[in-house]
């Protein structure tokens, strides 16, 4: 029983990370019908930049987090401007390759700048597990869940209660009509891309103390998050996050009770199964429901 609870708790923490990254896919898809296929590498970059600011420069973790998000946000604006917009404007789907290419560029750059060896970022709330009724859980895992949930609530507040958030939702609903309202839909698209990068980077720095930071850390994570975004339904932000949590628990249970290797194949198997039954994902709506 303790083993089960332990697995579920760790699974929720892992799932929260998957959820954050998966929501990143949703942010750009909902507003501009574009997916950043290299988003996993933005997770890695967040961890690496965070490592430099927090460990190398010794900055407070909150300042390092803000600094990292500023860097990734800026890179997001640039990447959207130069590797997405030209293709979207030309009506070409080449952005599929260009977003991936930017991710691969990040891996190469990370290998050059930080090397190939894993880098350790000390947990933000201490190393020793907290024991409760015989169950040990790392403070960093608790932090991940709390912070990820807080980010989701903040994102929800942004979408529901701020003028800019409402403009994001309006652009997602209809770019054309949003433009008629005077909303600069071009700027919203850039901001959405930057926001997705920030979410991924945030997840990267949050998980790095548990997994270590290294240039390949985001590749599989990004793919799993992509599968989760599809399973949840690409436009259903909250649903995707819940799917992330459930996925993390399922992955933990399967690798804990069956064998570890199964962990990396369940994502796309599940994705195919879900799409077979619900083509718009578990929480996605059909086109006619949206009208």
């Amino acid at each position: 029983m303790r083993f089960l609870v332990q697995i579920v708790l760790s699974g929720i923490a892992t799932g929260a990370i998957y959820g954050l990254v998966a929501v990143g896919y949703s942010v750009t898809y909902a507003t501009m019908r574009v997916l950043n296929f290299g988003l996993g590498m933005w997770v890695m970059l967040g961890a690496m930049v965070g490592y430099t600011l927090h460990v190398t420069f010794g900055l407070n973790v909150l300042i390092a987090m803000l600094g990292m998000m500023t860097v990734l946000g800026g890179l997001g604006l640039l990447a959207e401007r130069f590797t997405v917009l030209p293709f979207v404007r030309a009506g070409s789907d080449v952005w599929i390759m260009s977003t991936l290419a930017v991710g691969l560029l990040f891996i190469n750059a990370a290998e050059l700048l930080w090397g190939r060896n894993p880098l350790a970022i000390p947990p933000f709330l201490g190393k020793d597990p907290i024991n409760f009724a015989g169950i040990g859980i790392y403070p960093q895992e608790i932090l991940i869940v709390i912070v990820a949930c807080a980010v989701m609530v903040a994102l929800d507040v942004f979408y529901q209660y701020t003028l800019l958030g409402k403009a994001f939702r309006a652009t997602a609903s209809s770019t054309e009509v949003a433009g008629l309202m005077g909303i600069n839909t071009r700027r919203i698209a850039s901001l959405a891309y930057a926001l997705a990068g920030c979410l991924a980077g945030f997840a990267g720095l949050l998980v790095a103390p548990v997994t270590l930071a290294e240039p390949q850390m985001g590749t599989i994570l990004g793919l799993k998050a992509f599968a989760i975004a599809i399973i949840g339904g690409l436009e259903a932000g909250r649903g995707i996050f819940v799917c992330g949590l459930l996925y993390g628990v399922l992955e933990g249970l399967l690798s804990g009770y069956l064998y570890t290797g199964i962990r990396d194949i369940i994502g796309f198997t599940l994705m195919i199964l879900v799409l077979f039954v619900r083509p718009n994902g578990l929480f996605g709506r059909r086109a006619e429901e949206r009208a």
């Binding site: 003028l163 409402k166 939702r169 609903s173």
Partner: peptide
């Protein structure tokens, strides 16, 4: 062509964006 998932108030706010 209203924003169907926004409330009426939000639609008006977006008009006055």
């Amino acid at each position: 062509q209203l924003f169907p998932d926004h409330t009426v108030r939000e639609n008006l706010e977006l008009g006055a964006y």
